[in-house]
Design a protein around this nucleic acid. Structure first.
Length: 681
DNA sequence: GAGGAGATAAACACAA
DNA sequence: ATTGTGTTTATCTCCT
């Protein structure tokens, strides 16, 4: 089973890829309008390459140039962050198959962007946590690097200008100094704004002192007017790189040392950001830079550059050296709608992940406590990529109850779990890791993952995150229908349910709607009932159960694993999961549902929805998931009224309390049409 | 390798 | 003519 799960995960990748790919296009479009990065849109593009041709710039020009350049760099920084999350600390991610690298490969495959959903699918909460940390560290480092570059450029330009205009009178020089200071001030402002923005977005959680550290530092260490003479004094050979000249000047603010450090630093990320603020701030710059730069990969010293090629998602342009790469980055990946959109998406992803992470982490604790697992390290996220032995204490058997960590990994059932498999090493595969689309994970669908519980638990997640639900269309349709008081929905209502419940289905409507219709028509379990004013769809539980016979008996491996690897309780749990899935009870964890949904759903659990779970405790493991007679006859009352206006109504209150049909006499009207005998045997 | 299940795409028919 | 709905077929992938 374990192996199967793993393999499934992997194999499902292609399919999921397809699905994702088809969506990605739209996702891209959604972000296209990106207003976020537009603040400075249009300014940066042409400026980038002008760095070397600034021989005769006037102070004003220089200032303008610097401003634009600063913006450009800032944009690049943001972009780097966007992709940085995908390839935290790894330059060679493309080639290798580590879990962390997966995102990159995915990103490569879908040039447009990684959708939040993809990110979430790809990464397990621990991974996400690690990535977030990495990203924060990287951000700091990037910011510092950025400002360092700005400083260097300024210095270089000043040097150049001085050389070019040696004969200039003192006044001219003074003007330039003034301009220089202004530039620095503006840079600092920009930096501050940037940091504030990041903080605001929760991307960087800097303490005030820390955030302001660089700002404080720069003025004193670098910008002090009195230093200028020194700066110029120390100028080296005309053609000498700015870095060198700066180095000679001993301006630590440039972070030259840090730069050197970054090259030597281990490629490993050091999530721990130095939160200590130094009196003069200067050391802070160096310190934090060193820390953050540590993950700036040894080789290229740029997160987007590795193995001689641009790691920008979908790019892969070959660049001989870092310089060329930088140029390439500036020209090919300058600020534009797409990049901006990517950045925005990434920010949203991060935010979503943070929220989700908190929730999942909390849930995990509860789950582990419930399973008598050691509350384990409170910080499972610190080692997201721990190679988890297949034969971990939690064999796949635990599928049901421990669905979340069958492999010992601490990934919550979260769906986030639905990773783009390729990422996950076979050994890490887990039942909870659903491949791509709603379907595809039949195995989990059938007996590995309690869909209902997963849906219930991740209700909010699916609702808000653009994650493709790891359930089959049939399951989802059934769920939608069962959630209603009268167990019937029009097609349009089903559509609405999909879009309401899953952010994923708010896009790509043509595809999934077609799939929904296809499923409705294809599966006998869905019965179309003609109504006075139209047709509604109902679920034939018998058919539904028939179409997915209990695998307990049919899956030797599963049974074997369960018996060997788990206690009876676990086995029972697994079986319960199977049952749960088959009948899609939602309400396993009502608490996880939002009030509205919960209220609306609860009533349903009584008849058929609850069946799978409750019986379980009593007769669960021994008998196949059969529904008791009452359950067979799902009370379906053909709506007499148009289902219109169902639009986006929240199932909540209105549906919740009153549930006439649920308690009312079962009406087999619809069942009679096509329902074969109720033989479940 | 065969067969089943699911997803996806597409074509077609029909009704509003 | 368009749109929504419903059916059917074909193809592909994955799993058993």
């Amino acid at each position: 089973m374990m192996v199967e799960s793993a393999s499934e995960t992997i194999r499902s990748a292609p399919s999921s890829q397809n699905g994702v790919g088809s969506l990605s296009g739209q996702a891209d479009g959604s972000g296209g309008g990106g207003a976020t990065g537009t603040t400075a849109s249009g300014t940066g593009r042409d400026v980038t390459t002008g760095t070397d041709s600034n021989g005769e710039m006037s102070p004003a020009e220089l200032l303008h140039f610097q401003q634009q350049q600063a913006l450009q760099v800032a944009r690049q920084f943001l972009l780097q962050q966007a992709s940085g999350l995908s390839s935290p600390g790894n330059n060679d991610s493309k080639q290798s198959a580590s879990a962390v690298q997966v995102p990159v490969s995915v990103a490569m495959m879908s040039p447009q962007m990684l959708t939040p959903q993809q990110m979430q699918q790809i990464l397990s909460p621990p991974q996400l946590q690690a990535l977030l940390q990495q990203q924060q560290a990287l951000m700091l480092q990037q910011l510092q690097e950025y400002y360092k570059k700005q400083q260097e450029q300024l210095h270089l330009q000043l040097l150049t200008q001085q050389q070019a205009g040696k004969p200039q009178p003192k006044e001219a020089l003074g003007n330039k100094q003034l301009a220089f200071q202004q530039q620095l001030l503006q840079m600092q402002q920009l930096q501050q704004q940037h940091l504030l923005n990041l903080q605001r977005q929760g991307l960087v959680s800097l303490q005030p002192s820390q955030a302001s550290g660089p700002l404080q530092t720069l003025p004193q260490a670098a910008v002090c007017p009195t230093d200028l003479p020194q700066l110029w004094k120390g100028e080296g050979a005309p053609g000498q790189p700015a870095e060198d000249s700066v180095k000679q000047e001993g301006l630590d603010l440039t972070g030259t040392a840090a730069t050197a450090t970054s090259f030597a630093a281990p490629p490993k990320v050091s999530p721990s950001l130095s939160h200590h603020t130094l009196p003069n701030g200067q050391p802070t710059v160096l310190t934090s830079r060193r820390d953050s730069s540590s993950h700036e990969e040894t080789p290229g010293s740029h997160p987007l550059y590795g193995h001689g090629e641009c790691k920008w998602p979908g790019c892969e342009t070959l660049c001989e050296d870092l310089g060329q790469f930088i140029k390439h980055l500036n020209t090919e990946h300058a600020l534009d709608d797409r990049s901006t959109a990517q950045c925005r998406v990434q920010m949203q992803v991060v935010q979503q992940l943070e929220i989700q992470l908190a929730k999942e982490s909390e849930r995990l604790q509860a789950m582990m406590a419930h399973l008598h697992m050691r509350p384990s390290e409170p910080k499972p996220f610190s080692q997201p990529l721990n190679p988890v032995p297949d034969s971990s204490s939690f064999s796949k058997v635990t599928v049901s109850a421990a669905d979340s960590f069958p492999d010992g990994l601490v990934h919550p059932p979260t769906s986030a779990a639905a990773p783009v498999t390729p990422l996950r090493p076979p050994g890490l595969g887990s039942a909870s890791l659903h491949g791509g689309g709603p379907a595809r994970r039949r195995s989990s669908d059938k007996f590995c993952s309690p869909i209902s519980s997963e849906l219930a638990q991740n209700h909010e997640f699916y609702k808000n995150a653009d994650v493709r639900p790891p359930f089959t269309y049939a399951s989802l349709i059934r769920q939608a229908i069962l959630e209603t008081p009268d167990r019937q929905l029009t097609l349009n209502e089903i559509y609405n349910w999909f879009t309401r419940m899953f952010a994923y289905f708010r896009r790509n409507t043509a595809t999934w709607k077609n799939a929904v219709r296809h499923n409705l028509s294809l599966h006998k379990c869905f019965v179309r009932v003609e109504n006075v004013k139209g047709a509604v769809w109902t679920v034939d539980e018998r058919e539904y159960q028939k179409r997915r016979p209990p695998k307990m008996t049919g899956s030797p491996t599963l049974v074997k694993n369960m018996i060997s690897g788990l206690s009876y309780g676990a086995l029972n749990a697994s079986y319960q999961a199977a049952l749960a899935e088959s009948s899609f009870p939602l309400l396993n964890s009502p608490g996880m549902l939002n009030p509205g949904s919960t209220s609306s759903l609860l009533p349903l659990s009584h008849d058929d929805v609850g069946a799978p779970l409750e019986p379980l405790s009593s007769n669960g493991s021994s008998s196949p998931p059969r529904l008791s007679p009452p359950q067979y006859s799902h009370q379906v009352q053909v709506k007499e009224e148009p289902a219109e206006a169902e639009e986006d109504r929240q199932p909540g209150p209105s549906l919740g309390a009153p549930n006439p049909s649920a308690s009312g006499p079962p009406e087999d009207r619809d069942l009679e049409e096509e329902l074969p005998g109720e033989e479940l045997s």
